Computed example of a mutant assay.
Amino acid sequence: MHRRVLLHDAGVIGNRPCTPHIGARSYLRHQGADVRDARVVDDGDLVSAGGVSAGIDRALRLVKQAFGSETAASTERYLEFERRGTVVVTSG
Rank of each mutant, 00 (worst) to 15 (best):
V47A: 09
R61D: 08
V41I: 09
H21F: 00
G68F: 07
H8Y: 02
L6P: 00
P20M: 04
D34H: 15
V40W: 07
D37G: 13
R39T: 02
A38W: 14
V87I: 15
R29K: 14
A73S: 14
S53A: 12
E82N: 05
E76D: 03
V87N: 07
A49Q: 05
V35P: 10
L62I: 15
A73G: 08
A33Y: 01
L28E: 04
G32P: 07
L62N: 12
T86Y: 06
R83K: 10
V47Y: 04
H21R: 00
V35R: 12
D45P: 05
A66D: 11
E80A: 04
R84S: 11
D34P: 10
C18L: 08
I56Y: 01
L60N: 07
R83C: 10
A72R: 14
E80Y: 00
G14F: 01
R25F: 01
L62C: 14
A49C: 14
S48L: 06
V47E: 04
D37F: 13
V52C: 09
T19W: 01
A72M: 15
G68E: 07
S53Y: 00
Y27R: 13
V35I: 13
T71Q: 10
R16K: 07
D42A: 15
E80F: 00
A54P: 03
K64I: 05
E80L: 06
A10F: 07
D34I: 09
G44E: 13
R3N: 03
V52G: 08
H2P: 13
A54S: 14
Q31T: 06
G68Q: 07
G11K: 05
G44C: 11
V40F: 05
V41W: 14
